[in-house]
Design a protein around this nucleic acid. Structure first.
Lengths: 237, 237
DNA sequence: CGTGTCATTTTGTGATCACAAAATGATTTC
DNA sequence: GAAATCATTTTGTGATCACAAAATGACACG
């Protein structure tokens, strides 16, 4: 598919589909598209991301894509190689360890900060998301699982109103998500165990220590067990 | 002052001063300039940063500036307001608390990770930097102090070889540095106490627990004491 | 003198262009 | 047939342009 808008037109054309014509709308759209692609595993580590390619795919000019790629590179979600090429970073054992360590330091903390802001309404929504997750796990839809798992965690974290810790955690998820997708591609999703139900109960009971423990266990179970072996295997094939 | 390079020239001009003609050299130069400006406090919170203005100041076209500003906005070092305007974010008590919390979680951890890689040579360099810091503190040169204090901490952190925690901490420093500059502008630098000497001794002795403690105490002393009161005062004047 | 209005200027955004470096693929050479 | 070489294509980068939104300042009006 080529550019939706050919070079025949000399001037910019008004967007018809999008109601949001606010400042930086195109950039926001591109940013959301790439972020969502990374988080749901549609971008594979090592895969090259070209400016013109993405621009054509999204039907926009290279300009907003350039800025978005720079943004995501700043968050270490993408890697700008010395020759200027942009790609999804490869995971290494050392990197994996660090992400795991950072997640275990930051996410339980932010969850506890969010706790006072989490209502029974939130608990209800979380339970709904978690039910969806269970379905996707058994049906083996890894992409949907990743999207929902992200939604679950960030529904909690966002309640904190955090402007500092939340972006840091955002960056971490963007970094490990593409790799985890490849993991699920190998081992499947059926064996995945999470601690979401413990977390929901802790929220309902407004039990900070229990929420911390649930989140930390969820991280450890979700990443710690799977990732290490895969990485050591990966070096051999 | 207008653009140094007028519109009379039609094509790009070869750089004469810079020896590095590698890919993205201009962007790298702009990035380094803005980062250094933020870290040493030459940018004041609330101050607007215009693309064309910065471009003219640095003698480059708006293009690389646009990308750099997007990068730094992604690291929360700059803020893109809904109207597209870019400014140095204002510090709030909530934000300050979060930065402090994140620093105390991440920096002692990374310091300990770096410890095995820190040699006596590093300790010697750190002592030299710390001597410089002491001089600047008494002479009241806040900008130099900030630059050297950053150099001290990141000399330690960088030794870890970290690719995950280090960028997170980088982002944190970019966020609080401009604010701290305004603090030093009010209370001066003479009263500043740090734990650098304890940290150096811990490195020499390869004592992880002591290094953690020194870093955490340094953060608490440096930020915790000063910032809070200033922020509560700021609301009244 | 304060306030609302309007013309002007500034600014961000998206698009396009020109160029050089890099990747790609065909072709030649041994 | 494998490796080196060269032409071609792709790609990132910096610059410039056109446009619209926003900010600014002058000015009229009450």
């Amino acid at each position: 598919m080529a550019l939706r808008r050919s070079a025949l037109q000399s001037g910019p054309v008004k967007e018809v589909t999008g109601p949001s014509t606010s400042r930086g709308a195109t950039r926001g759209q591109v940013d959301a598209a790439v972020r969502s692609g990374l988080l749901s595993g549609r971008f594979i580590p090592g895969k090259a991301v070209t400016i013109r390619g993405l621009a054509a795919e999204l039907g926009v000019s290279p300009m907003p894509v350039r800025e978005v790629l720079q943004r995501l590179a700043a968050e270490n979600a993408l890697e700008v190689k010395p020759n200027g090429r942009v790609q999804v970073p490869d995971m290494t054992p050392a990197r994996f360890d660090e992400v795991l360590k950072a997640r275990r330091l930051l996410e339980p903390e932010l969850a506890e900060l969010a706790l006072p802001h989490l209502t029974s309404r939130d608990a209800k929504d979380l339970r709904s998301i978690d039910d969806d997750i269970d379905e996707r796990l058994t049906s083996g839809d890894a992409e949907a699982y990743m999207r929902l798992n992200h939604a679950f965690h960030f529904r909690i974290y966002r309640a904190s109103g955090s402007k500092v810790l939340l972006p840091l955690i955002d960056s971490l998820w963007l970094q490990f998500a593409p790799f985890m997708r490849t993991v699920y591609g190998r081992v499947g999703t059926a064996s995945l165990e999470d601690r979401h139900k413990e977390a929901i109960r802790a929220i309902e009971e407004q039990n900070g220590a229990a929420l911390r423990a649930a989140i930390e266990a969820d991280i450890t179970d979700g990443m710690g067990l799977l990732g290490k072996e895969i990485l050591s295997d990966a070096s051999g094939g």
